[in-house]
Computed example of a mutant assay.
Amino acid sequence: MEDHRMLVGYARVSKADGSQTTDLQRDALFTAGVGAERLYEDQASGKKDDRPHLAACLKALRAGDTLIVWKLDRLGRDLRHLVNTVHDLTERGIGLRVLTGQGAAIDTTTASGKLVFGIFAALAEFERELISERTVAGLTSARARGRKGGRPYKMTPAKVRLAVASMGQLDTKVGGLCKELGITRQTLYRHVSPSGELREDGRKVLKQSKSK
């Protein structure tokens, strides 16, 4: 069954990158086992959204395949696009390997690497919830101009999962995590322990979401 899985590569360069970067990406992908016929390549500026070969690459991938990129930033225009793209790969059962850069530890074809997919899924869900919360907060503020501050953010299933994944990492800064999630330290520690284990309140939030 392993023999039927394919390695697919994607490379992206801007005009400022020059041909050396192009060759570097191609060589790295070939060394990783990507065949020339399964290499997709775009040349675009950082601000340009139109990337036809990335769209073709994502469309060609099938469950069990592995997408290989040189660096994580080759795959996404920005963080939101990157998160949604990786989440989509997760849903489709497609692996992801990053060869170099800050994301070089990502290899979701391994058992330990599968945790990364869970983090991206939580990020995608958190992004959707954050947009919804900002909309609600904006409407609330518009109806009550005399009150200070907007509607307080509550702990949601996505925030709980993201907190669990983040607190389990040694380099996580609690203050920054709380600011990102829009919660206090007290709220965080009521739901998740410092080592990333679910506490009673956290289990309740996840249990309520499953019962809906």
Rank of each mutant, 00 (worst) to 15 (best):
D73G: 10
R74L: 05
A32N: 00
G118F: 08
K204F: 05
D27C: 02
G64Y: 10
G175D: 00
Q25H: 08
L7Y: 00
T135L: 01
L206F: 12
P152T: 03
Q20D: 14
D42Q: 05
E129F: 03
Q102M: 10
E200F: 11
L198K: 09
L29R: 10
G46F: 09
R80Q: 10
L181I: 04
K204Y: 06
T172K: 10
A36E: 15
R203F: 01
E133N: 04
R151H: 07
H87P: 03
A28V: 04
K212T: 15
I94C: 13
A63N: 12
K212R: 15
K48G: 13
R12T: 11
S132K: 07
V34K: 05
T135K: 08
K204T: 12
T172G: 07
Y40S: 12
R38G: 04
A55W: 05
E180H: 11
E37K: 07
G196S: 10
L99T: 01
A104P: 08
L115S: 12
D50K: 15
M6C: 06
A165S: 09
D50W: 09
G33K: 04
L24T: 14
Q208Y: 03
A32V: 00
K47G: 11
L72H: 04
K179T: 11
D3G: 06
L162I: 00
A60W: 03
D3A: 14
S195F: 07
P194S: 02
A104D: 10
G168Y: 05
K71H: 08
K207M: 12
T140V: 14
L162W: 00
D3P: 12
S166G: 03
F30C: 05
P52N: 13
D3E: 15
R51H: 10
K210R: 15
L7C: 01
R26F: 09
H87V: 06
A56E: 15
K159G: 03
Q25E: 06
H53M: 15
L181Q: 04
E91K: 15
V192N: 06
S141Y: 04
G101T: 09
A55H: 10
E200L: 09
G113S: 06
C178K: 00
D78H: 12
K48P: 03
S112W: 11
G182K: 07
C178F: 05
D49M: 01
R12Y: 12
T135E: 04
E127V: 09
T184P: 09
G149M: 09
R26Y: 10
L139V: 08
Q102T: 12
K15H: 11
L177M: 08
A163I: 04
K204N: 08
M167K: 08
K47V: 13
R92C: 12
T31I: 07
V8I: 08
L24I: 05
A124F: 06
T21Q: 12
L89T: 03
A55R: 14
S19L: 11
K114T: 14
L54G: 01
G168P: 06
E180M: 15
A28W: 05
Y153Q: 05
G103A: 07
L115K: 13
K59G: 10
S112D: 13
C178Q: 02
A55K: 13
G101S: 11
K154W: 00
R190E: 05
G138L: 02
Q20N: 12
K154C: 03
E197D: 15
L54I: 03
I94N: 11
S193Y: 09
